[in-house]
Computed example of a mutant assay.
Amino acid sequence: MVVSSGITEAVGGAKAQDRTVDLFQGALVGHSTDTAIGRGLTELAAAAPLEGRRAFFLLPLLSNLAASTAIAMSDTNQSPLQLQPLLQRAAWLRKLYFTRAAFSFVWVALAFTVAKGSPVVASALLVVYPAWDALANLWDARMTGGAKANPTQVLNAWISALVTVAVAVSLGLKLQLILAIFGAWAIVAGLLQLATAIRRRKSDKGQWVMMLSGAQSALAGGFFVAQQGSAAPVVQTFAGYAAVGAVYFLISGLVILFRKAKGEAGDFVSEQG
């Protein structure tokens, strides 16, 4: 009888230890739940009166240790993954803003120099500007989530493409409607830019500058419409608008650049919460 009882206790203890290991492994991979652990504890208490009960008291400590380790490992692995796309997006927007600023500055320089003595260059500049804006908006939408995530940029691109065609037709037919066309375009494009900046303000730096730029564009559009029919030179009148827009893009790019230089990359993650 003594031998039989010893064998029974030994078998029970072995089963309890095996069960403890199983539950501990389950906790590490995230499969154990409160219900499962409670059921396992009950089985241990019933199956192993001696060794099983000893393991019974150790199981909560092992489970807590496993959960803490899993959480710590998860946090360590996820932080870089969360940070990297945000930093890439910031770098992309900085590149976009600097590129658009550079293009506009070059366009303005040509408008006030070469275009003054060349009607062909002046006409070409008037067609190129909205065409470039359409391309830039499509580029922006593609690199920041696609068309579904950026409806305002896609709509802005289509409108800029239509304006390009309208300007080319007006120049070809000598309709003298350029300022009116550019004015209407500046109003709509400014409002769309404002909407884009408002949508991005919580996730991207420098958007307060883009809000100002969009509002200013809408106001300038009204001025262009009012100037239609006057003797004001079309290219030089619009060049002032383009120059202000270039400054806005430059400031936005610098805001993102200075944030990076100060090592504030952590803000990109904290502001997502």
Rank of each mutant, 00 (worst) to 15 (best):
A180G: 06
L219Y: 09
Y97A: 06
W158K: 06
L126W: 01
V106A: 15
A111S: 15
G266H: 15
P233A: 02
Q25L: 13
R39D: 12
A16I: 01
L194F: 15
F224C: 11
A47T: 03
G40F: 08
N137P: 04
A157E: 04
R201D: 01
N64W: 05
I198G: 07
A166Y: 00
T152G: 03
K174Y: 03
G240N: 11
G240H: 11
I37Q: 09
L212M: 08
L173W: 01
E51D: 02
T20K: 07
R94V: 05
Q78P: 06
V255F: 08
A14T: 09
Y248P: 01
G172W: 10
Q207G: 09
A102Q: 09
I198R: 15
Q153F: 11
V167A: 12
D18P: 04
R19T: 09
P85G: 03
S270N: 11
I181N: 13
T237M: 09
S230C: 05
I7G: 00
A36G: 12
P130Y: 05
V128Q: 05
P60F: 05
E9W: 04
L61K: 11
A131N: 07
D267T: 13
Q227K: 12
L194Y: 13
H31L: 03
S32K: 06
M73Y: 11
A242N: 11
S252M: 08
A124C: 07
S217W: 02
Q216I: 10
A70N: 10
V11L: 12
Y248I: 01
W158P: 00
P49M: 00
P49C: 01
L257M: 11
A134W: 02
Q176D: 14
F238T: 13
P130V: 10
T42W: 07
L254D: 02
L62D: 03
Q272M: 13
G38T: 09
L219C: 11
K116G: 15
A226I: 10
G145Q: 08
G13R: 09
A48R: 04
A218W: 04
I187E: 06
I251E: 00
V11S: 07
L83G: 07
V163I: 15
I181P: 10
G206E: 09
S270E: 13
W132F: 15
R259G: 15
H31V: 13
P233Q: 03
T20A: 12
T8P: 00
L126I: 02
A141Y: 08
I37F: 05
A189I: 06
L83W: 00
L125K: 06
A157W: 01
Q216G: 14
A218N: 08
K260A: 14
I159Q: 00
L125D: 09
L250D: 02
I251W: 04
S123V: 01
A115D: 10
S160C: 12
L138F: 12
F98P: 02
V235T: 12
K260L: 08
A66H: 03
L87N: 09
I159L: 11
